[in-house]
Amino acid sequence: MTAVGITTSGVSKRLGRTQALDGVSLEFAAGGLNGLIGPDGAGKTTLMRILAGLLRPDQGSVAFSAGGRKVPFAEVRPTMAYMPQRPSLYPDLSVAEHLEFFRDLYGLAPEVYAPRAAELLSVTRLEPFRDRRASQLSGGMYKKLGLMCCLLQSPTALLLDEPTNGVDPISRREFWDLLYRLASRRVLIVISTAYMDEAERCSKVHLLDDGRVLSSGEPAALLAAEGAAGFHELFLRRADARRP
């Protein structure tokens, strides 16, 4: 699988009266998990949407590479998968019907689809719930179904916007185990989260606050450099500093 990379340089985006992003320059590489860490309103979703090509930056640019070679977005797009933060599945369609719908949208052949769907259903342990409608799934199962729809086409790049938001701790751990497996296959994974404990599970984190990048690097090195025991502390300290 060709390793996909994304580089943003000086990306700014204004949404209405809010400056959602302000000069964001970041690098995302395949292999390992890229975490976008920040509190609510930091600009995580806006950045994700820009990476997915759903929003255009006001300033700055986003560059894509495949196998070390610079490529246009259109080349990466067909094998890029994006999981929005807000619920985006069809409440009245069942788990199996969702998989069939996305199978057709991605144009998967039956011999590719059947084993992959079976694998995903067993890994996510959703097999017994194939016929359950999305509206009747628990929060964790719903997110796992969203992830399955993304993974059906075996993407080269996976953008997950707060996939564990509102999910119980056990389901969250299962979710991360799934992501580790994918990362080992040299898939580019960008995952955003407001859960600071999840930041430490990433191989590289990008701290975002108020539309700006605070810092970027390996979680342990970053904490050591800031002299903080955890990411909680780091963001709380910043919040206190801003308070008049």
Binding site: L54, Y82, S88, L89, Y90, L105
Partner: peptide, 13 residues
């Protein structure tokens, strides 16, 4: 309104 358009637009459709 139910958010599915965001997911739909990120697929090849």
């Amino acid at each position: 309104e139910n958010g599915s358009m965001e997911l739909l637009l990120s697929t090849p459709v």
